[in-house]
């Protein structure tokens, strides 16, 4: 067996009839929000590549295990489910799986929605076309960097496809502020001698701040040397909601999801 396509066998026990209801007090929040369709679709593709050999297309190829129920006795929350997948189940023959954030989020989203999800409802992006949009019409490299190309002003996206879920990446294209990590916020600083500095925050503590300034320089400023310190909570990135077509957005998402940190 090709070790890069290890088989994911979920042997957490789906709820049996007659089991006590599990969601006792408040309904257990399983996830930060509803699972975005692109995330489920990403998971469906991963399932097809890594799980279907053992679990089957319908999720019921292993006796007593029906993944289509979307609920599992020993993995109540998504966090539980992720832990189970990472650990595997040696006694049941399921190996441990090392999945990055994006892939884990996708697999879980798919497992929770296997019963109802229509794969045809989500257009799969084309990586090559997405790269062309990213580097061309989108002009993304004017701020971002991928591999050895682009700018350091905005966050490096070389491994964004491992770090961010598909849903988060999709939202970041149309509503960048909603997905901006607070650490990445733009700061506007004015030193006591009147020098104005703008940059992207890299780190901050009680006494100092580290930034990538708008001239791509790494700088540390002591707060005691500053006259003004402003944190800008809106993203400087434009929304592509109206400037890219839905196909271009899908392709761009496909490209971003392909960025897993290897040299580009």
């Amino acid at each position: 067996m090709n070790r890069t396509f290890r088989i994911l066998i979920l042997t957490v026990f789906p709820l049996a009839m007659g089991s006590p209801p599990l969601h006792a007090q408040a309904p257990t929040p399983l996830h930060d929000e509803q699972y975005p369709a692109v995330e489920i679709a990403h998971g469906a593709r991963l399932y097809e590549a890594r799980c279907v050999t053992c679990h089957g297309a319908q999720g019921d190829a292993i006796g007593g295990v029906n993944l289509r129920s979307g609920k599992f006795r020993n993995a109540i929350t998504d966090r539980d489910l992720a832990a189970f997948i990472r650990a595997g189940s040696p006694t049941a023959g399921m190996p441990p799986f090392t999945l990055d954030n994006a892939d884990m989020a996708g697999i879980i989203a798919y497992l929770r929605n296997m019963n109802t999800f229509d794969a045809a409802s989500v257009k799969a992006g084309d990586v090559a076309r997405g790269r062309a949009v990213f580097e061309g019409k989108g002009n993304c490299l004017s701020c971002h960097r991928v591999g050895r190309k682009g700018s350091f002003v905005a966050p490096d996206l070389s491994d964004i496809g491992a770090a961010r879920s598909a849903g988060s990446l999709q939202r970041s294209l149309v509503d960048p502020t909603s997905q901006m990590m607070p650490i990445n916020r733009t700061v506007r600083l004015v030193t006591k001698d009147g020098t104005a500095i703008t940059g992207r925050r890299l780190n901050e503590d009680t006494y100092s701040i580290q930034i990538m300034d708008d001239r791509e320089r790494l700088r540390t400023l002591l707060k005691s040397d500053l006259r003004e310190f402003t944190i800008v909570k809106t993203s400087p990135m434009p929304s592509y909601k109206d400037t890219l077509t839905s196909d271009e957005l899908a392709d761009m998402l496909g490209y971003l999801l392909s960025l897993k940190g290897s040299s580009q």
Binding site: A163, S165, S168, M181, N203
Partner: peptide
């Protein structure tokens, strides 16, 4: 603040 993003971390990088 950002669902779907990497988990937040404290020191040495305080995200």
């Amino acid at each position: 603040p950002v669902p779907g993003a990497p988990g937040l971390a404290r020191a040495p990088i305080n995200t």
